[in-house]
Simulated assay, not measured.
Amino acid sequence: MSGKSKTLPTIVVASAGIAAGAAVAFTGFLLKRRAVRTTCKPFYAEATRRFKIPGISEGFVPQDLFYLSDEQTWLFSGYLANRRPSPIYQVGADGTVRRHEVRLPEGSLYRGHGAAVTAAGPFVFLTVRDGFIALDRAELAKAADGDVLQATGHRAVPLMPAFMTVQKDMLYIGEFSHRLFYPTPKSHWLRCPSGETNPALLLAYAPHDGGPFGFGEHPSAVYSIPGNVQGMCVTPEGNIVLSLAWGFGDAEVRIYDPAQAKRGGSYLVEGHKAPLYFLDEATRVETLTVPPMAEGIDDVNGEVYLANEAASNLYLLGKFYGGQYVYSFPTRE
């Protein structure tokens, strides 16, 4: 009895401390929710809540989404915080969800970041550290929930891919830059005509029947882009849309008109020259403040669809302001 009386106060104090910590955290979430709802009010006024991000409450940390128009299916890529194999999800028009693991060409299961997923022709592309792997699109379309998808090939690219999309028959693949935590090579830091310095590159590959997976061996254009870019898409009018996010601060969706982009001569990529263009303040035509931790984006019929990682179990914050859902919003051209 005396032993219990000695330990009981410790347990009570510890429990009280945990409860107090939880209360503080909960209060912080509520305050952040109020702040997000205020700063992102124009976004919520124009955006439409579409559907719940798959796996968001089962450890999945979404990084990208892409719409397969022929199959009327959404693809999601990302990773699991516990380092289990990274899944791909399919969400059908009726809301049916199918989850798959991916086997790399050399035989091991994919455990990568799942930074981006996209598709072109008979292939679905998924980023790896040095480029992307290709999956058979027809096999993916008929795969049952739980099936493992076998990658059929791999392509290396001359940067570490953070986002990727195929839009208007062009393959775009770009890098993420953060000065302290994710620095890019100094050769990628370029002074823009409008005065600012862009620290990252976006490579554009044109279609080519004899090239790897249907695209040219070398970039047909190089774009100088800002830091913190998480995703990209192209509007029907040809504008380039970038999502930018870092940490728990508000994220942004920026729209650029590449027709206004100034030519900066050529940029040498693996010994081959490609025309260089700048996505800078002179070419930015619109900016929309969006909730924190925005990730991949895709354009479907003039609406930009946005994925967000903030409501994953790794971060939790987004569960307080609807971050577990895909939202879409129109762009004002």
Rank of each mutant, 00 (worst) to 15 (best):
155 R>C: 07
299 D>K: 01
34 R>H: 08
27 T>F: 13
148 V>P: 07
197 T>I: 13
146 G>T: 05
138 A>Y: 12
42 P>C: 02
177 S>C: 10
81 A>T: 14
333 E>I: 11
167 Q>P: 05
204 A>Y: 03
297 I>G: 03
185 P>Y: 02
39 T>Y: 04
231 G>T: 00
75 L>C: 04
24 V>W: 14
319 K>A: 14
118 T>F: 09
4 K>A: 15
246 W>Q: 06
27 T>Q: 14
26 F>V: 12
125 F>T: 02
299 D>W: 02
130 D>A: 10
132 F>I: 01
102 V>C: 06
250 D>C: 11
234 V>Y: 05
186 K>T: 13
149 L>K: 01
305 Y>Q: 06
223 Y>D: 05
144 A>S: 12
67 Y>F: 03
51 F>V: 10
323 G>V: 06
156 A>I: 14
73 T>V: 09
39 T>D: 11
115 A>W: 00
121 G>D: 01
268 L>K: 15
171 L>S: 11
322 G>T: 05
283 T>C: 04
131 G>N: 06
189 W>M: 12
131 G>H: 00
121 G>C: 03
61 V>D: 07
306 L>T: 03
125 F>I: 04
247 G>E: 10
147 D>C: 09
316 L>E: 08
105 P>K: 04
167 Q>I: 06
86 S>I: 02
164 M>S: 07
99 R>H: 08
214 G>K: 02
132 F>T: 06
201 L>I: 07
292 P>W: 00
328 S>G: 04
8 L>A: 14
177 S>H: 10
324 Q>A: 13
92 G>N: 12
215 F>E: 04
56 I>W: 01
196 E>W: 09
241 V>E: 00
164 M>D: 03
237 E>W: 14
115 A>R: 01
152 T>V: 10
72 Q>T: 12
128 V>M: 04
78 G>L: 04
102 V>M: 00
231 G>E: 00
274 A>T: 07
11 I>V: 12
306 L>G: 01
174 G>C: 08
232 M>H: 05
27 T>N: 15
332 R>Y: 13
40 C>Q: 07
306 L>P: 03
16 A>Y: 14
331 T>A: 10
56 I>P: 05
50 R>E: 15
62 P>F: 00
184 T>M: 02
283 T>Q: 01
260 Q>G: 07
272 H>A: 08
284 R>M: 13
78 G>N: 06
252 E>F: 09
26 F>Q: 15
257 D>Q: 10
273 K>C: 07
286 E>Q: 13
108 S>D: 09
